[in-house]
């Protein structure tokens, strides 16, 4: 071992200190290396990571599917809103003349596309046809039906709230008993939508928590697998940040890849459903066409996926790195 060269310069014997500039540069380089390396690790070992990513993707795809369903359900109800009709029932004491006067007045108002007068006889006939009480009604001495005016608002005047206000105004007119909107079932539909939305939000939050836990557990196993390596690295002076970084990147990639996969899944389902819904819409002679995931939503999904992955990894790393110390 005579050829071992040991520097004889005393000054260079110890120089463990590194300039700030070099440290900063190296940190940047490490970020780049860690991010690429962890991505390659995930892609290179599909058997290890595929199951995790699939589970994560499903957990992210479900809320997205909920969201897609809700947007479409709302779009459907909006296309119905235009079709709300109003009926004015006159008081029993009102004469046909009074009803006709009111009709003339209403015809002048810009809110209505079409105003129709329904006589007592017409109303009774219609009621007989639809109610099934046909014969029983014959026993009545007088026609119990009021004069009725049906009103169809114009397309530009279809906001349910405005219609509601208008109905109240008209109900206040002399000789008018009540004004009814046929929007009750739309209201029911909308309140069911609201409940569904709340349930979907709750389930989505649960699934987000699930994503956090799954990523956290995956990272925990990765940390335990590299326990000895971490011990050695700590011995030669690695900071927690240095050790943490690759695990955080791994969590980030898991979340991002899973979100990409989730967006893909939802879009595939969308394409499959689009055909059959447009057929259904045609049967109802509706113009409705299924709405896909908006680009902004897809972007949001990717951001949320990556963030959940990062946070899950962070929590796991915080908890488990502390326990690994060199022996």
């Amino acid at each position: 071992m005579s050829n071992h060269k040991v520097s004889s310069k005393k000054s260079s014997a110890t120089s463990y200190k590194v300039s700030l500039r070099d440290r900063f540069r190296t940190a940047l380089k490490l970020h780049k290396e860690n991010s690429i390396q962890t991505l390659l690790d995930i892609l290179r070992q599909p058997t290890n990571s595929l199951m995790t990513i699939l589970v994560l993707a499903i957990a992210l795809a479900l809320p997205s599917a909920f969201y897609l369903f809700m947007t479409n359900a709302k779009a459907v109800s909006q296309s119905w809103d235009g079709g709300i009709k109003m009926a004015l029932y006159m008081e029993d004491s009102a004469t046909e003349k009074q009803a006709q006067d009111l009709l003339a007045q209403l015809n002048l108002r810009p809110e209505f596309e079409q105003v129709t007068f329904v006589t007592k006889d017409d109303a009774l006939r219609e009621f007989k046809d639809y109610s099934g009480f046909g014969d029983a009604l014959d026993y009545l001495d007088t026609n119990p039906m009021p004069y009725t005016i049906t009103l169809e608002p114009t397309a530009s005047f279809s906001d349910p709230k405005e219609l509601e206000a208008l109905a109240q105004e008209l109900a206040g007119l002399a000789q008018v008993d009540q004004a009814k909107l046929d929007s009750d079932w739309i209201k029911k539909y909308n309140s069911i939508l609201t409940i569904s939305e709340q349930i979907a939000t709750f389930v989505s939050l649960m699934l987000a928590l699930g994503v956090l836990l799954i990523v956290g557990n995956t990272i925990r196993l990765a940390i335990l697998n590299r326990r000895e390596e971490i011990q050695v690295i700590k011995l030669v002076g690695a900071t927690d940040a240095f050790i943490r970084r690759p695990f955080l990147y791994a969590g980030f990639w898991y979340g991002l890849i899973a979100a990409l996969l989730a967006a893909l899944m939802v879009n595939v389902v969308f394409v499959l459903l689009k055909q059959s819904t447009s057929q259904l819409a045609q049967l109802y002679s509706s113009e409705f066409s299924l709405l896909g995931l908006a680009p902004s939503f897809t972007l949001g999904l990717l951001v949320i996926g990556a963030l959940l992955g990062l946070i899950g990894a962070w929590v796991s790393v915080r908890k488990h790195l502390k326990d690994i110390n060199p022996q």
Partner: peptide, 20 residues
Amino acid sequence: ALPLIIAGVSDRDIPKRVRA
């Protein structure tokens, strides 16, 4: 090279110092 990478030694210096 590990301690040098951890300490943030520049890329330029690492091969030299490892080989030394």
